[in-house]
Amino acid sequence: MDNRRSNKKAWFFVLPVVALVAFNAIIPLMTVVNYSVQETFGNNVFFWEGVKWFEQVLNSDRFHDSLGRQLIFTGIILSIEVPLGVAIALTMPRKGVWVSVCLVFMAMPLLIPWNVVGAMWNIFALPDIGLLGYALNSIGFDYDYTQQPLSAWFTTILMDVWHWTSLVVLLAYAGLRSIPDAYYQAAKIDGAGAWAVFRHIQLPKMKRVLTIAILLRFMDSFMIYTEPFVLTGGGPGNSTTFLSIDLVKVALGQFDLGPAAAMSLIYFLIVLLVSWVFYTLMMKNEGQ
């Protein structure tokens, strides 16, 4: 039985939000769509180009390369940060004075602005004067992130792990804290070992927060811009030019607004698609 009556006036209350979303999302997005199907040489003169820019972007080796780099980068980031974050969360104390100490230490990297992180690591990793770069070289590694692609990748990944693992830790820790003591006691009585406790109690209870953690880390790392831009500027060569850095080069460096707009939309759709697929898969068994 449905006692609710429909009241058309309710739509008026939604109007402010619709207006807000329109101004900060839909209208800018439509501008991008506008650019992506036309050619312009300025003076507000546009020529219809259809899907030409999309074809050009999708067929360009340059886009394939930066997309490939982006996928590899995000893959590495997720496969390091998620297990590491969970592992750290598991070793954190469950009660006592050390809890807050740990939490503050964990939250610290998250509070530093992104470009500052980039600048810090830029100096920290310099092979001649940076602590990390100098130390690595003096113990025998040939390390120079300004010249060698491998060193540049290593530094970028290390920086991201340093900056963002805490997020996974904090989320995983919150999930762990929500498990009642009785579960651990029951597991002891059932003779479960540490692995069985992790596999059958902790992991299932962390599932929701881990889904959020993985989604956030996927989106953030897939759209990473500031930190590698400050650290390596996309170099050496194009070796750390990820999608967003490439996009900015196309849009603002070369002022190819059409291809840049097409690329933006493709980029956006990839993030949306992957997030949706991932979320659907993770939540498949929920809601029973």
């Binding site: 006691q185 009585i189 059932d190 069985a196 059958h200």
Partner: peptide
């Protein structure tokens, strides 16, 4: 605890969510 061979049932039911009833019973 696991060497004392004690079984304990708690105030709030503890089940291993991801397992079937059968696996829950088989777990110990």
């Amino acid at each position: 605890t696991d060497q004392r061979n004690i079984a304990q049932v708690f105030q709030f039911p503890v089940v291993y969510d991801t397992m079937t009833v059968y696996d829950n019973l088989a777990f110990p």
